[in-house]
């Protein structure tokens, strides 16, 4: 087909390369910073050591923050996946006006600015005594994760043909059997993707957590947030590096699962 002139090709590829570098490289800056020997953050470090990793492990506050994050993320993921999957199936069956209305409701936590959600949820959590508890924060995070589950399962459901369900019913299967043997196997990739999104959403979340976590229940991002503002030592870079590693693992997992799901259906 018609050729793109060389100068345009070079210009496009060159500038795209620069923008991609701008997108990806700065993220990695925390990794060398975490191996600094000095007690202040410097890039590149003058001398390398793993002393801040040892400091991270030795410090009960950091350890507890990591555990609190995992705890909260598990609660949030479970709630979001169960409610979100059911909701997506309900939406899929609902008709017309109800469907668009409810879709708007389910996606609303994605649209309302997080600071507004955070302040509102904080106020109500104070009222009912859920502030500062893992359950309170887990539920709040489930709220933010819910749209991802609804969207992913919704997309997966569109791949389940109505005729398969009719065929199963015609062969004598009841609604629960149809769900278990026909619908569920086909939407599992969507549910898993939604679960991974939910987990990472909760694990990374700062704004709601800063308000809701309370003193005894700081998650890793909250601890990082406070440390940045108070001490700014390389141990923050260690925590940030750990978060990058976790994100990369989950990202790879999600890619792998969607790829292998794609192969199975292809």
């Amino acid at each position: 087909m018609s050729k793109t002139p060389l100068w345009l090709k070079i210009l496009a590829q060159g500038s795209a390369g620069l923008v991609l570098a701008f997108l990806c490289l700065p993220i990695l800056a925390v990794i060398p910073a975490s191996f600094n020997k000095a007690s202040f953050i410097a890039l590149p470090p003058l001398a390398y050591s793993s002393r801040w990793y040892e400091a991270f492990i030795a410090d009960a506050e950091w350890r507890n923050a990591l555990l609190a994050s995992l705890h909260v993320a598990v609660i949030a993921t479970l709630v979001a996946v169960v409610f979100g999957t059911a909701a997506a199936m309900g939406l899929h069956r609902a008709d017309g006006r109800w469907r668009s209305l409810l879709t708007g409701l389910f996606l609303a936590p994605m649209i309302v600015p997080v600071i507004v959600t955070a302040v509102a949820v904080y106020r109500s959590a104070l009222d009912v005594g859920l502030s500062g508890t893992p359950v309170g924060l887990g539920l709040a995070h489930a709220l933010l994760a819910l749209p991802f589950v609804v969207i992913n399962v919704g997309i997966a459901l569109r791949g389940v043909e109505e005729n398969w369900l009719r065929a199963a019913a015609g062969l004598g299967a009841g609604p629960w059997t149809i769900f278990r043997t026909v619908t569920l196997p086909n939407i599992t990739p969507g549910i898993v993707a939604g679960a991974i999104f939910s987990f990472i959403t909760s694990f990374d979340e700062v704004v709601v957590a800063v308000f809701l976590a309370g003193y005894a229940n700081k998650t890793l991002p909250v601890k990082i947030w406070e440390s940045i503002r108070l001490e700014f030592t390389p141990v923050v870079a260690v925590a940030a590096t750990l978060m990058i590693i976790l994100a990369v693992v989950l990202f790879a997992l999600a890619q792998f699962l969607t790829k292998s799901a794609g192969r199975r259906t292809a």
């Binding site: 409610f83 909701a87 309900g90 069956r93 509102a120 539920l139 709040a140 819910l146």
Partner: peptide, 30 residues
């Protein structure tokens, strides 16, 4: 079929109502 659909939607709607819509309303009333 309608009852089933309703049962599927109910948990998320109630959850969002209690944990999202009500807190927003409460905040804005302030």
């Amino acid at each position: 079929r309608h009852i089933e659909t309703l049962l599927l939607l109910a948990p998320a709607v109630i959850f969002l109502g209690l944990a999202f819509v009500a807190p927003l309303a409460r905040l804005f009333s302030l």
